[in-house]
Amino acid sequence: MLQLLKEVNQIIKWHELLWQMVGREVKARYKQSILGYFWVILNPLAQMLVMSFAFSIILRIPTNATSNIPYSIFLFVALLPWNLFATSLSSACNSLVMSSTLITKVYFPRTILVLASMISKLVDFVFALSILIIYMIAYRIPVTLNILWIFPIFMIQQIFTTGLSLFFAAANLIYRDIQYLVSLALLLWMYATPVIYPADLVPARYKLIFQLNPMAVIINAYRQTILGGDSPNFVSLAIALALSLVTLFIGLSYFKSREKVFADNI
């Protein structure tokens, strides 16, 4: 806990560097492509169309039984936060290795590199979110005040992502295999999370595994609050929060314990 406060304090002290780093990633990524930020929108849109075709027209996966929400929206509500999680984690995982020249030369809090890559993915996410909002308005999806729950849910997701990112970014400096391992794990993890299918399809004997998977709880909670108009399942969410905090503490303390030898290991 003390470690976390210390680190937050350091980051506040260096916040200008953090924003510069975020700016660097965001500006540099699209500077050379003609369509620029359009790619950020095009990418999930294309993904959604193809997956919708595969899973609603060919496989006919049912959406939540009560409402007749089109599968594409049902999918998109889960796919966007999942993509945020997956892209944040994989880019954070590479963030230290990518900046290895800096790490061996200048001192600044190393957590900034991890955070900057996560925040730049957040920028992409906000752009992609605009399609979802337009889509939901076009289809006149009713929402209730329960939609406000997405903010605490989102916080839990970011806590979980930060913990994992810190851990794997530090580990990847020691063994470069970690980045491949992470991308494989993310691929499998998506199928273990109710992104393309509704959570109620999961057989009862596997429910426990889902409750222990914070991403499953988080993704399901987005759907319940945005599309179902319900409040989230608080017990599951509390478990997810607890697991996310534990992940953050483990991730940060591993990161800090390795930080001293980062420059030696590159």
């Binding site: 790490i103 030369k105 200048v106 001192y107 030898v261 420059a263």
Partner: peptide, 8 residues
């Protein structure tokens, strides 16, 4: 590098 604080 030790003076710069990059290594310990």
């Amino acid at each position: 590098k030790l003076i710069a604080g990059v290594m310990s």
